[in-house]
Amino acid sequence: MASISARRLSKELTEIKNEGCPVGINLVKADDFSTWLFTIEVMGESLYQGEKYTLQFRFDSSYPISSPAVQFVVGDGHTSPVHPHVYSNGHICASILGNEWSPVLSVVAVCVTLQSMLASCKKKERPPDNDRYVRNAPDNPKKTRFHYDDDTV
């Protein structure tokens, strides 16, 4: 009997394979139930037109009861989008990945949320505390307690 996280992820994977991802989101790698990679593009008119980013999901056995660790891949030709909630090391400050995570949310739902976060951006800039955060940031963004005070940006 597989663990809940494995069963849940295999179910999500089957659905992705059967029905495909939403427009602008593509599955790159899902060889196991610990790390998945997606590419993400913003469709239509936006500040990020023509740009493509890679999103990494890391799961542990507590998924989906607790959130996956999600970040943009940085290095090896990848960069993180310049956005007020995205740090230059790829970490993302989004309440949905923290205290507002719900176990009914899925990997694709997270991708779509982040895609829309980029789509609605009005100004390309880093978070004001970017340098300080990046210097001290833990490897796993889940270890950071972000303050989600201005999600409206």
Binding site: E12, L105, V112, T113, M117
Partner: peptide
């Protein structure tokens, strides 16, 4: 502003989204 779009995505705009719920 963000979660709204999950709704949109799973609604009319991206009909291909899998129904995880």
């Amino acid at each position: 502003s963000t979660s709204k779009l999950i709704g949109l995505a799973s609604g009319s705009k991206s009909p291909k989204i899998p129904t995880v719920s």
